[in-house]
């Protein structure tokens, strides 16, 4: 881990009229660090994620990102072209619903290859080879490369979405409930895969989840949100093993034991 953060979040707030989306949130995210944002539905965690990933303009506050040139750029002072370029090269966004993040009517290979073509790769053979390699890494067999994701199971779609995001070697990936809506066994496989990839590629990630087990498995640090506010944050195992805030204690004690 280097000493400079990758993402600096300062006093981010989002209001919908009088209603709070999220309020006064600040943190730093370092290279290779996985931050989990947990809380129940409506706690503001997805609003926060969208504000960080430039999908939603915050009411106030700043988010700056250390670009590959080593300089911090305020995301909301960049041009839209720069932001969109960042989104499809240096960043990834894994949606809860794979159909939000995939092109359902083009083949798996083209889904993975799209970002490569978007950054100017013009060699079909190379693009296909890279796509094949990435399908392998997310455990999709090479003979499915020309199938459309419509023909894939939920778990496969989600793995395809991950490959599509990681193919350009991003440094920061946002994930919104990446295992939501999947069967438990499928979840385990996906989590393990994500964990391996994050390790292997040294990715930084911000993972929104309401599942504390997902947070424990994937993240180094976590933020617990309630009603748009951060009620507790810190080392993941400390927050889960020795929760301080009343709400966190309630959350942790509500986990079903198998």
């Amino acid at each position: 881990m280097t000493d400079e953060p990758l993402l600096r979040v300062r006093s981010i707030s989002k209001f919908y009229g009088n209603r709070i989306g999220c309020s006064d949130i600040s943190f730093d995210l370092y290279p290779g660090e996985v931050l989990a944002v947990v809380g129940e539905s409506g706690s503001g965690k997805t609003t926060l994620l969208n504000c960080l990933s430039t999908r939603l303009l915050p009411t106030s506050g700043s988010v700056s990102y250390r670009m590959r040139d080593g300089l911090f750029h305020d995301l909301y002072r960049m041009s839209e072209a720069e932001r969109r370029f960042l989104m499809r090269t240096d960043w990834g966004f894994v949606h809860q619903n794979p159909s939000d993040g995939l092109r359902m009517t083009v083949s798996a290979g083209a889904n993975v290859g799209e970002r490569l073509m978007a950054v100017g790769q013009r060699h079909y053979g190379d693009i296909r080879a890279t796509a094949t390699d990435w399908l392998g890494r997310v455990e999709i067999s090479a003979d499915r490369i020309d199938d459309q994701p419509r023909a894939f199971s939920g778990g496969m779609r989600q793995r395809l979405q991950i490959a599509r995001n990681l193919v350009t070697g991003p440094r920061l990936v946002f994930m919104d409930e990446p295992t939501g809506g999947l069967d438990v066994s499928v979840q385990a496989r996906l989590l393990d895969l994500l964990r391996g990839l994050v390790h292997e590629l040294g990715l930084s990630a911000i993972v929104v989840t309401h599942d504390l087990a997902v947070a424990r498995l994937l993240s180094h640090r976590m933020i617990v949100m309630k009603d748009g506010h951060v009620v507790e944050s810190g080392l993941t195992d400390r927050v889960l093993d020795d929760p301080q805030a009343p709400y966190t204690q309630l959350l942790v004690s509500s986990i079903l034991q198998v």
Partner: peptide, 9 residues
């Protein structure tokens, strides 16, 4: 032990 390892505050 857990305080020394950081798992407990």
């Amino acid at each position: 032990l857990k305080m020394i390892y950081g798992s407990y505050a």
